[in-house]
Simulated assay, not measured.
Amino acid sequence: MGVEIRVEGLRKSFGRQVIWDDVSLTIPAGEISALLGPSGTGKSVFLKNLVGLLRPDRGHVYVGGGDVPRLRERDLYRMRRTFGVLFQDGALFGSMNVFDNIAFPLREHTKKGEAEIRRIVLEKMDMVGLSGSGDKLPGEISGGMKKRAGLARALVLEPEIILADEPDSGLDPVRTAYLNQLFVDVNAEFGTTFLIVTHDIGTARVLPDNLGLLFRRGLVMFGPREMILSSTHPAVNQFFNARREGPIGMAEEKDVAELAAENAPAPPPAPIPPQLMPSDGRIRPSMHRPGEWLAAHGVTPPPGSFVDENGRDWRTEWDALVAARRHPRP
């Protein structure tokens, strides 16, 4: 099962440049969370602080009871085994074939024999759709295959947390959809905690259980997907609905007209799409009936919410899935 990450009062700067000043959030154990924000807001820097590759100016990062910025080197090395990391470009070793890239953490961090390593690697390659590609070099495979190889490598030590840094970068929409489905299926199978940094609004709207937005040296909002996608907060509304109107511009400096537009009422949120389901149709423990959070907080769903491209209302579909689980066919 996954592990909770609790961040308190995190501040990070490089010289006089403050990246963010006071970030606090809890990434729930066993759930899929995504962190977004305009370029330059420190999303990748945030991931590096979580695993201790960078140390914050102040604040705490609690993972499994330890405070990452204050761990000794030996304890930090041990704690990092809690994480699997999927880097933006896959970060495969160019001189190693796909099999050896995926096997590398097992050979580096365990005393397993080659027969056991082969079994684990082939299992993970099959899981991510790379069966038969083990002998290929990274230069001989596509960008999507590199991402899947990177995910397989992140999985071989069976981490409790997976951090993914812009996994959809450079992928076309179809490959992005396949990768998102892999994340959902891995979470459903193992209960792994996911934190995904992305720019892709399509991914953010259908994949995670929780969403967050970094902007102007801070965390604007973090919480359940429905809370974020129904929000009328100017920056949140603008970003997650991909609109030009709002406080996020091409630059931090704004003229009088832009500042006036910032204070204008936010337009209504776009319809909230259904959340991506696991391939086998099961309901993940962290999933809830579409509209449940909205109903509990007295928020009316935007018109057209929870209806998929085939016209199916997933509130009805959800009820059918729950009924089928309660009364399975003999």
Rank of each mutant, 00 (worst) to 15 (best):
R58M: 04
A324M: 09
K124S: 10
L10R: 08
V256F: 15
L35W: 06
L25C: 04
G65P: 09
N241D: 03
L122D: 14
G212W: 01
I32W: 01
E73A: 08
V7K: 04
N187V: 01
G66S: 14
G59C: 09
R81G: 07
D313N: 05
R312T: 12
R55D: 13
E258N: 11
F104H: 08
D100G: 05
A324R: 04
L50V: 02
R58D: 10
Y178K: 13
S231H: 03
I102R: 06
G134L: 07
V18H: 09
G150A: 07
H327V: 14
L53R: 11
R6A: 12
S39T: 11
T110V: 06
K147F: 13
E292C: 05
T316A: 12
M277G: 12
V197E: 07
R284Y: 00
P302M: 03
P69C: 01
L130G: 11
F239L: 08
F83A: 01
D280N: 08
E114L: 06
T192E: 01
G129H: 08
P247S: 01
L122S: 13
G212F: 03
A320W: 14
T41G: 12
G143H: 09
R6E: 10
A324P: 10
P285I: 00
I141R: 07
I272W: 09
A103T: 08
I117R: 05
I19F: 05
E292D: 09
E317Y: 06
D135H: 12
E245Q: 15
I196Y: 06
F215R: 03
L86D: 05
Q88E: 04
A323H: 02
G64H: 06
L10I: 10
V186C: 00
I201Y: 07
A296L: 11
R315V: 03
L171I: 12
A204C: 04
M127D: 15
I19A: 07
L106I: 03
A177R: 11
P274L: 04
T232N: 12
R205L: 02
N210K: 02
M96N: 12
